[in-house]
Design a protein around this nucleic acid. Structure first.
Lengths: 137, 137
DNA sequence: AATATTATCGCGATCATGTCGCAATAATGA
DNA sequence: TCATTATTGCGACATGATCGCGATAATATT
């Protein structure tokens, strides 16, 4: 099913099939996805570089989060609970080493910085095994 | 000055000049260092790949921490307050976007995972401006 | 001390993620 | 319908990190 998703048409952005596809995939995904995962889903229909560009463009528009996984790759997730102005990113992400799923951990965390320090980016990552993948323990 | 540092000689490890040099540099550094920073300090005396290998080897031995910076590079820091068995890694690291310095933030953090989840790696990173580099604010 | 063993090194090649330039394409506005 | 220009595809590039392999050198053995 092809969902019609509105892109922000301000700022001279255009609405293309590729963007629709990627946005739809992101929306349907229950986890944050990286370029290579998207590539798999989309097959050779869409170019590598294009995926990167679209994802980063979405990110600039505030539609998706961009998070750096603790495997060194970037993951993108559809923005929920974020208004135009205020994004909520100060939570940890969890990556399952077995099934690869990435989830947001519920608790927002507040890290105290030393006096005079200014925070710009927050990145919290925990990897391990999710409930489904660590049955024994 | 050449400090004599003991490497774990168990596990068929050998003690070489290169390892001594790198370990010494790590010990003297007041911040976590990445391969390229080490490369600068060591000049062309030591090969790129060797530095990587030695660092990862140290990491396997539990001598140094390996942390993924929010710039996508790995940083290594001498292990302090870590016993053979128990490492204390559950603190945030701060990277100054101006001077590049990397520091450990004092507070250990305890993130609650959902039921059944098992944590293996912890990675907390905040980047911004340190006191020296953000005078105005 | 001399020799054998093999961890480590240096060098080059390779892989991976992510980015960029540019000509061709296609989405929008007039 | 046409003009404008955002977007795409393709190739090349940049960087961090890894690997294979022969040469070197740190230990172990005799």
């Amino acid at each position: 099913m092809i969902a019609i998703i509105f892109l922000p048409l301000r700022m001279n952005k255009r609405n293309t099939k590729t963007k629709q596809l990627i946005l739809e995939t992101l929306k349907n995904a229950e986890t944050a996805v990286s370029q290579d995962i998207l590539q798999e889903e989309l097959g050779d229909a869409v170019d590598r570089a294009t995926i990167y560009r679209v994802l980063n463009s979405f990110c600039d528009d505030g539609i998706v989060h961009k998070i750096l996984g603790d495997d060194g790759k970037y993951y993108f997730a559809f923005c929920v609970n974020c208004t135009e102005k205020k994004h909520h990113h100060n939570h940890f992400h969890f990556r399952c080493l077995e099934c690869g799923k990435i989830e947001c951990l519920p608790n927002e965390v507040d890290i105290k910085l030393p006096k005079g320090y200014r925070s710009v980016n927050f990145n919290g990552f925990i990897s391990g095994y999710c409930a489904a993948c660590s049955p024994g323990a």
